[in-house]
């Protein structure tokens, strides 16, 4: 991945992180930790991979994106707003009574949202259904989904894993946000879903484990998935929950809590600094 592309993705991700913080702060409610951990992969996907058009969000031939870990809706809304599916001003209405930005993704009312989600475990099956629908109708669109590592506790994830391999859904690429934390604590303590890679391998998937904050690794893994035929791909991303906001990083208490004014200002200033660093970098030179 060349420096210019990397810089543009990093810039978008930094903006997405600021949007996430603003949404959760404005609502005084929401899930910042797991939203911040997927900002990089969403920026990469929407900038370079997904064939979607904000002017035609319902194009039947578009690529699909399913946020199976629906509680991290702030990240989805941020990237959709940054890509022009709706105005960034809408983000401040997140979780508000008059807003179309529900606490969890609502495909009926949010432009660019391809699947309603929030109840964990359901999104991966829906993504598999979309991928099967594409194959059945001879369409070449691809389906991308993001699951949480805690979400892997759900039995339906493994039903969907079996189904996707059985029907050879090589147009399906799933990311697991392996930030290591779920609401009640570390996943290895609450319900140990590891080894995640071996499980998906045993279910017949193409498995890759990467650093979910490294654009080169994301790029390589997505290309590998694109080239893999006959089986679905899973990209297990080692990530940092709360990535980019120092006091939120790796802190389970920030799974579903909103910052106060002081914390918001501090977080925003850290994220702005990170953005300035990206803008000043010589990646593109």
């Amino acid at each position: 991945m060349n420096g210019m592309k990397k810089k543009a993705a990093a810039r978008l991700a930094a903006n997405v992180r600021m949007d996430i913080l603003t949404e959760v702060y404005s609502a005084n409610s929401g899930h910042p930790g797991g939203s911040l951990s997927i900002a990089d992969v969403l920026a990469y996907l929407y900038k370079y991979v997904l064939r979607v058009d904000p002017n035609h969000p319902d194009d039947p031939d578009r690529d699909r994106f399913v946020l199976s870990k629906g509680h991290t809706a702030p990240a989805l809304y941020a990237i959709l707003a940054e890509c022009g599916f709706f105005s960034k001003a809408e983000l401040k209405g997140f979780r508000n009574i008059n807003s179309f930005l529900q606490g969890h993704p609502d495909m009926k009312h949010t432009p660019g949202c391809d699947m309603t989600s929030g109840s964990l475990g359901l999104g991966l099956s829906a993504a598999a259904g979309m991928a099967l629908g594409a194959k059945h109708q001879g369409k070449d669109f691809r389906v991308y989904a993001v699951c949480g590592d805690g979400e892997l506790d759900e039995g339906q994830i493994w039903e969907a894993a079996m189904f996707s391999a059985h029907y050879k859904l090589d147009n399906l690429c799933v990311f697991v946000d392996w930030n290591g934390l779920q609401i009640d604590g570390r996943i290895v303590d609450v319900m140990n879903s590891t080894p995640i890679d071996e499980k998906f391998k045993a279910f017949g998937w193409n498995v890759q484990v990467i650093d979910g904050h490294d654009f080169d690794q994301i790029d390589d893994a997505v290309n590998n998935a694109l080239e893999t035929k006959g089986k679905p791909s899973v990209i297990i991303m080692k990530t940092v929950k709360g990535k980019g906001v120092s006091f939120m990083e790796n802190q389970v208490s920030w799974h579903g809590a909103a910052p106060n004014e002081e914390q918001y200002n501090q977080g925003m200033s850290e994220l702005r600094e990170a953005l300035d660093k990206v803008l000043d970098s010589t990646l593109d030179r």
Binding site: P60, R64, V66, M107, D114, M115, G121, L122, G123, S125, A126, A127, A128, G129, M130, A131, L132, G133, A134, H136, Q137, K139, G155, Q156, E159, A160, F163
Partner: peptide, 14 residues
């Protein structure tokens, strides 16, 4: 459970 959610996904493709 998977079947029902798969059906949901299929329906979104027409």
């Amino acid at each position: 459970g998977n079947m029902v959610s798969v059906a949901a996904g299929l329906s979104t493709t027409g």
